[in-house]
Design a protein around this nucleic acid. Structure first.
Lengths: 240, 240
DNA sequence: TCTAAACTGTGTCCGTCAGATACAGAGTAC
DNA sequence: GTACTCTGTATCTGACGGACACAGTTTAGA
């Protein structure tokens, strides 16, 4: 999307820069945080399509161009919004083992993505991670320290979990936006009259409709992933 | 992105409609397939940002507005491109059990996403699946038929695997676009001087750098996921 | 064979948006 | 108090998606 000519130096300064001391000119009327919050509110309501420099400026009672004194461009604004919307990761649940912590962590991340549907689109493509994003990552790796997994594997686990949380949040918002209740309904109408072309899918949908177990894709995938990790950790412990 | 005012009826006709018989007016100079291919070539080279109705039209030697005789709008063009770029799923490997088939399937899907980096951005948000997309799904469910998983669980597996393939393809293209080789390099420079703030992450990165095991996130996650599924199938078989 | 209808590609126009630039006022350091 | 610097503003541009009316082309039906 707006992954194009992002000046990484200015973006780095924006995400990681420290608030500088007293300046010379007139006091700024805005804050980076206020701008980010305003943008988040708009994107939450109308998506990234509805996010316009003009609208953000209006909601802050300034001109559109005033925003460019704070933010290099729209792409950087979105990055800042993402960083703000994610926020700091919740503190790890005390007394929980690695599995409990990771389970918790993934659900919390899922929740953040759920609350800000635009965040999914904002995280496609290469991007510079902000402090909060690294802090989220730190939690995963910290939870896995001492499990016998290598550093690379710990990072792979993080990638895997982030992906699942993001993916499921997307599915959840997708089904929430359509009037029909479950995701299967859309598929079912699409399959009508084409059952012989997609026989296994048709059978699965009928079976799923009969079960009426609701949307458990998050739980299901998370359980499978954590089971797989647990098996690996157990195997490592056994060979040591 | 362009998930906005997509007319679902016209999109359905575009993706699922059959080529109609002889028409009245002059013969069309273009084909849906040619348009899609042209768009794919442009998006492969310059991403979705570089994809312009104007550019597609130029590459086909027609006016921009001529495209609107074939495609309702840009959003629908992207959907069509996605359907064309994914193509039909490869035939299932004969003689492979469900695990082999799913492993194969996920890697093939990963490969398609790798070849068309814009496909990641094109698959965010709710969308109407096309015939090819359903055919890919059908393969997963077919591979899992008879394993004892319920229909809903089979679909959940599909969601999980699609998510992993997409997620890893994104990571792969992200690291491919940056000049530095591994994804860890960017993190490492970012962590420089902040080691005490992200201690576990720092340790993991150092460990990963020492291992020098390259990028195995796809294999790692896939193995974990399939291990988890295998455990579930085994448990189901045991209780039956 | 002729005519009317339908479909195609084109030219022109509009609204929206991101961003560049030049400028006037505000506040601070010397 | 003066010069410098930073802020917000006003104005403008270029790119893009898409609407609309029109002219040319091909076929269906008389």
């Amino acid at each position: 999307m707006e992954t194009g000519g992002t000046d990484n130096r200015r973006l780095y300064e924006l995400l990681w820069g420290t608030p500088s001391g007293p300046r010379r000119g007139p006091r700024p009327t805005l804050t980076l945080d206020a701008i980010a919050r305003s943008g988040i509110a708009i994107a939450d309501a109308d998506g990234l399509d509805g996010l316009t420099m003009q609208r953000v400026a209006e909601s802050l009672d300034v001109t559109k161009m005033a925003l460019y004194r704070y933010v290099p461009g729209k792409a950087e604004l979105v990055a800042l919004m993402l960083e703000t919307a994610m926020g700091e990761p919740p503190p790890p649940r005390t007394g929980a083992d690695w599995r409990g912590q990771l389970d918790d962590w993934a659900r919390q991340l899922f929740d953040r993505f759920r609350r800000h549907p635009w965040a999914n689109a904002a995280t496609v493509g290469p991007r510079l991670p902000g402090p909060n994003e690294l802090a989220w990552l730190e939690r995963v790796v910290a939870a896995l320290t001492g499990t016998g997994l290598t550093g690379g594997e710990q990072l792979d686990v993080a990638v895997l979990l982030v992906g699942h949380a993001r993916n499921l949040a997307q599915h959840a918002t997708a089904t929430a936006e359509t009037p029909r209740q479950p995701r299967e309904a859309g598929f079912a109408t699409l399959l009508r009259g084409r059952e012989e072309r997609f026989p296994a899918l048709d059978a699965a949908l009928r079976s799923a409709a009969a079960e009426a177990a609701g949307d458990q894709a998050l739980d299901f995938g998370l359980a499978r992933i954590l089971d797989g990790i647990e098996a690996l950790i157990a195997a490592r412990a056994a060979t040591r």
